[in-house]
Design a protein around this nucleic acid. Sequence first.
DNA 1: CTTCATTTTGAATATTTATACATTTCTGGT
DNA 2: ACCAGAAATGTATAAATATTCAAAATGAAG
Lengths: 160, 160
Amino acid sequence: MKNRTKRQLAIKQAILGGRISSQDELLHIMKDQGYELTQATLSRDLKILKVAKVSDQALGYVYVIPEGANTENQRENSRMNFLADGFRDIQFSGNMAVIKTMPGYASSIAVVIDNAEPYEIIGTIAGDDTILLIMREGVTQSDMINSLILIMPKLEDKLG
Amino acid sequence: MKNRTKRQLAIKQAILGGRISSQDELLHIMKDQGYELTQATLSRDLKILKVAKVSDQALGYVYVIPEGANTENQRENSRMNFLADGFRDIQFSGNMAVIKTMPGYASSIAVVIDNAEPYEIIGTIAGDDTILLIMREGVTQSDMINSLILIMPKLEDKLG
DNA sequence: CTTCATTTTGAATATTTATACATTTCTGGT
DNA sequence: ACCAGAAATGTATAAATATTCAAAATGAAG
């Protein structure tokens, strides 16, 4: 479970970064990165990540993540980016994480996280500029960060 | 050639309109509309139109036209929509068409049309708020309109 | 109207991608 | 620790899609 999330993030980034034109190609890339999986799993992951294949001048076809996929639609997506801008900082303590935000942002961001229902996070409590996240037993800080980036890609600027 | 353009427009609209989940399904729809073609041709058309297949809650997969496909990228796409807003009117006379635009828009729009190199249009001459289009022999007014919509989808609001 | 070159298309096929099914791996409760 | 149920994965295969190759259509030039 834990590994699945991480793998999907890696797949997503491979796609965002590279010019990949078939699942086989992507499969080799992932294996090079140390992930063990088969084409079947890859196909399922791509479905979950809403990856699409479109024609491309140079390669014939490339995999892309259409704008606004993963987040229903474009408007939702830009709202998400807006919210990500309100993110200031995250600190960990035991099985808890505390996110500090710009004033007023906390509950909106918490709602986004809640709706995504990430495996890593059991629950959230939000004030005005602070969110408390309760982490699932066994989840690492790095897992948490990956999970949050998966929900709000723009956070990568601040967390990656 | 003429028919090919028209067919591709019909395909594009079927995709924009409907929830189509396989080429076979789309093939039947096109045949119902009186187009004669095979899956092979359809596959090529979808490639040309930069249509993509992404996962969908209800249907498993649907065909979509990712935002900004057909036009290189999103920024280009919004510029295109902006320009389409400057379009006022089109009138035909013999093998010529005259587009009236808001002041200053004409040459930008003409450049977009020139770059698309539509079969239907031999050439354009633009002033400040007027574009003269020379139509290819045998091209109908309806062909022209379809062709322009194919270039600037947003024109459909004003021409469809 | 021919002829040649180019483009488009279909049929058959290769390639790619999705999924059914069986198996393994997790998770939670006792 | 053990078991039952759920989720994830691989294997094998079905289904879907892209491409090769040959034929037909179209266009340009004489």
